[in-house]
Amino acid sequence: MKISLQQITFTYPHTLYGVFDIDLEIQEGELLAVIGSSGSGKTTILKLIAGFEHPQKGTLLFGDRPVQVLPPSKRNLGVVFQSYALFPLMTALENVAYPLKVRGVRTEDRLARALEMLRRVGLEAFADRYPATLSGGQQQRVALARALVFQPNALLLDEPLSALDAKLRIEMRDEIRNLQRQNGITTIHVTHDQEEALSIADRVAFLKDGRLVQVDTPKNLYDHPKTIEVAKFVGRSNLIPVQVVDTDRIETPFGVLSCSTKGFSPGSSSTALIRPESILLYPSIEAAQSQHGTTVFPCKIIRDRFLGPVRRVDVEVKGYILEAETMWRGEIGACSIKRDSICLFLKTE
């Protein structure tokens, strides 16, 4: 089912917080991740779609049907909360069967369907266990099974992985993606973890102060962020004040870089985004020049962090500190920056 938000505005009573003029369309079967910092309004969007809050302005459509006045119980949505919100006095099987019980499905049928759903999330053997006896990951699977068992119109996930440890979180996000694909269900996944959003979403919506800043594919959001806020939030970034020299060059505090300056007039000020992995590191100037031509800079390591697959280093280039990432484990004495990886923003941002 397609979900459309048209000019949706909502503010919490007696506050200035909320979401403003949200225009968003989630296609049938799409997984849209909503990201943003705390208080940006991402959970509010989920609450508005679920019907827990009602917009003061705008239209919410499920398919072509306006639903903004429908109560949550009539919206047929599967919701998974950060705390899972499992019913502690019901077994895993009873929890999963609950939405079917509410719908008046006969006991044998609903238990059979709930058991089948538990089998699909790999928890058939835990059907008789109470939530308190299940691990975080298992509770998460029960919550997912419960949200999917009644074939809802869409799945709403409110930071469902934030209570899990890092390893399990990665496993579970793949599992969510698989289940979503298998069921072909429209899904809105709210998270503050940009890596989680980029890894599983078809598209990502970035919110700031209750306003939608950019809705794009994970690749575009990362490579071509619309604003500095998006660049800062999604991935790590070096944001450098620069001056446009001509159509092909910019002046940075540590030297001139080759880069497309389309849309910027010569002499204008700008901010350049350079991702850490776009900075290429070499043992020496000679090694850098042999591979990268002339635009290379001598550099010195200020801080070196070993992260396993990569090293994250702060390098000083002519007195300016850049953050870089490399798989290279040896000496570092020079760097260069890929031309097509530099992204320019208007200085006013």
Binding site: A50, S73, N76, V79, F87
Partner: peptide, 18 residues
Amino acid sequence: FDTRKLLAAESFGAGRIR
């Protein structure tokens, strides 16, 4: 009491009394 349990039940179709 974690009221999200009530919200979850509501989203699954349960009315207030239920």
